[in-house]
């Protein structure tokens, strides 16, 4: 270990990363420090991002988009963003323990790009966009294009995640996660559902069900078509079941110590049908209240 760089602004952070692309960004440290403690990684140096104020801010522009800085902790998302980002806030509640939520960040979840990262299905379901930054400028990447494989993403050596852009106020959202206990679990299966009443679309994001976090596009298309957006009539049992089956069909789960692939498929079909019903109920309620 040769260097520990502590920029106090985003420009400075980008310059440091450009000058030394081997520097490993360090935010909450809840992934990085485990690697270091167990000597699974011996980075050339660390780039501590916790003093970069730009990364710890969020704002809502035109009431349409939430720009969430990469370094906002899960604890703050739960406390401050339940209204603007309901699925992400619900997912944040399920991350680790209070100590982990006090430090862990969405930027770190994106950096790690684990197929089971809990912040990722809500970003996929809502059609969010990742903002990357480097000395060369900023670029926007659609969330479904961000992940390239298990723990792999499109970040270039000189780039950092600056923020995530999430659409706000479009409609009800749900997040569900299956695991062996109520806290401190890596998801066996996770699913986020987001209804967009304006464009009449249903978004579905899946975690721990494929080599990377994915959308379930066929299921999205089917539900968007099948729901009675104008009349707001209830969901037919066959529609919910078909939706569940399509979500399960989108998955390519693995067998591992946490669950078999058959169990994962079954679980997500149940979760999907349930979430769609819950979200739709909320949509109808909001609609009838005007």
């Amino acid at each position: 270990m040769t260097s520990f760089v502590q920029p106090v602004g985003l420009d400075e952070a980008c310059e440091a990363k450009a000058a030394e692309p081997d520097l490993v960004p360090l935010a909450g440290g809840t992934d990085v420090m485990v690697e270091l403690n167990f000597r699974r990684a011996r980075p050339h140096g660390l780039l501590d991002l916790t003093r970069v104020p730009e990364l710890r801010e969020w704002s809502v522009s035109d009431g349409c988009w939430l720009r969430l800085g990469a370094g906002v902790s899960y604890a703050r998302i739960i406390k401050e963003l339940g209204g603007h980002a309901p699925a992400l806030a619900t997912a944040s509640r399920t991350v680790g323990s209070p100590q982990i939520r006090n430090r862990g960040t969405v930027g770190g979840n994106l950096g790690t790009s684990s197929p089971a990262g809990d912040a990722l299905p809500p970003l996929l379901a809502t059609g969010s966009t990742v903002e990357l930054v480097s000395v060369r400028g900023n670029r926007l990447v659609r969330i479904e294009d961000f992940f390239t494989g298990p723990k792999e993403n499109v970040l270039l050596p000189d780039e950092l995640v600056a923020a995530v852009w999430l659409p706000v106020g479009r409609g009800p959202q749900q997040f569900s996660k299956v695991g062996p206990r109520n806290a401190m679990v890596i998801a066996v299966a996770a699913l986020a559902t987001a209804l967009d009443g304006e464009s009449r679309r249903v978004g579905v994001g899946l975690g721990a069900l494929a080599p990377r976090p994915i959308r379930a596009v066929e299921a999205e298309d089917f539900a968007s078509w099948a729901l009675d957006w104008d009349g707001g009539s209830g969901i037919h049992a066959d529609v919910a079941a078909r939706f569940g089956a399509l979500v399960a069909g989108a998955c390519a789960p693995i067998d591992d110590v946490r669950g078999s692939s058959a169990y994962r498929r079954h679980a997500v079909a149940v979760l999907a049908a349930r979430s769609l019903r819950w979200a739709w109920q909320e949509y109808r309620k909001d609609k009838s209240c005007g």
Partner: peptide, 29 residues
């Protein structure tokens, strides 16, 4: 455990409860 799982290293850093095993010493500057 040195991996954030057990909480036996819980301390306050700037008033926030954290696992000391997951804070790089330099971050406490």
């Amino acid at each position: 455990c040195e991996q954030g799982e057990c909480g036996s290293c819980t301390v306050y850093l700037d008033g926030v409860a954290v696992c000391a095993c997951l804070i790089a010493a330099g971050q406490a500057e």
